[in-house]
């Protein structure tokens, strides 16, 4: 069974299965990813993040419909946290995307974060590649804005939308979450609620203080996702940002930086994998014990470990 070929031929089940294999870290998945890699790099990848309750899923759903109206095929990846206690997850984003579920131009996948943030961004990035190779023109990656995980995903995305809602406290939520810097576009959702103007103003002020001259000045779009207001403007903003990336040469730069990072990350993993396979359990136990006894600090222990590996111990 050649999943990669089937998915390149447009088989939805093959795409779905490959994402499962990626999530499971299954054997053989590298081979499949290798096959699809030449077919990636086509899609506009958009990260969407913001605090819980900001209406992200509804916004993603409305945006997807708008993009479909513009003739684009859309992939959606909705990431929710795995429960640290049970390892399970409840993924409810599709509730707000029901009308998309039978549109053959849309592919939606719910993903659980499954532990470490590094793991989250890696599996998500690979799932994005699957949908890219599958032929989705735009891929929307929705995550709950909680910090580092989003920054990782923003690096893999071309454009990032940060969703804000008015009246959720005195402070812009993104500042609290530390994700202000990653926004290319702000969507002030639920803009029919009191305080929307104020939120927009605060964002503008903040951006004026923090944006380098000559750099992309993030766009702010007011939306009411439940009634489709501002959604066309949001899609326009994304197009504008993509155009800017291309025209300014920043796209090229970003891609280069991303690719390098991917290479380094992959190399790290390769290396660690090899290290793990080669290491003797006894060495590990000895070094751990030295650290426990506080004779050796972690860094020195690690150096020792690498040294032993090099010498082929």
């Amino acid at each position: 069974m050649d999943l990669a070929q089937r998915l390149l031929d447009g088989d939805r089940r093959a795409a779905a299965r490959l994402i499962t294999l990626i999530e499971n870290g299954a054997d053989g998945v590298e081979l499949e990813l290798k096959q699809i890699y030449p077919h990636t790099g086509q899609a506009h990848i958009v990260g969407i993040t913001g605090p819980p309750g900001a209406g992200k899923s509804t916004l993603v759903s409305a945006l997807a419909r708008e993009l479909r109206g513009r003739g684009k095929t859309v992939g959606i990846i909705a990431v929710d946290p795995t429960s640290p206690f049970t390892g399970g997850a409840l993924l409810g984003d599709r509730i707000r995307m029901q009308e998309l579920s039978t549109d053959s131009g849309v592919f939606i996948r719910s993903m659980a974060s499954r532990g470490a943030l590094g793991g989250l961004s890696r599996a998500t990035a690979d799932a994005v590649k699957v949908l890219d190779a599958f032929g989705c023109n735009v891929i929307l990656v929705e995550t709950v804005g909680a910090g580092q995980g989003e920054v990782d995903i923003a690096r893999a995305a071309h454009s990032t939308i940060v969703v804000e809602v008015p009246g959720m406290g005195d402070e812009i939520q993104a500042i609290k979450a530390g994700i202000l810097e990653i926004a290319d576009v702000f969507a002030v959702n639920k803009a029919d609620k009191a305080g929307a103007e104020r939120t927009v103003m605060e964002l503008e002020m903040m951006l004026q203080m923090n944006t380098r001259p000559g750099a992309w000045f993030p766009l702010i779009v007011k939306t009411v996702a439940t009634s489709n207001k501002g959604i066309a403007e949001l899609a326009d903003a994304l197009e504008k940002h993509l155009r800017y990336l291309r025209d300014s040469g920043e796209l090229e730069q970003r891609l280069r930086a991303n690719t390098l990072r991917e290479l380094v990350d992959a190399a790290k993993e390769e290396f660690i994998g090899e290290l793990w396979a080669e290491l003797s359990q006894r060495d590990l136990a000895t070094l751990t014990q030295s650290m426990l006894d506080h004779h050796l600090d972690p860094r020195s222990a690690a150096k020792e470990l690498v040294r032993k590996f090099r010498n082929g111990s």
Binding site: T86, L90, L91, I95, Q98, A112
Partner: peptide
């Protein structure tokens, strides 16, 4: 209950 048993549950409503 399925979530608490460690499964990934997609709830489509």
């Amino acid at each position: 209950a399925l979530r608490d048993a460690g499964m990934e549950v997609i709830y489509s409503g």
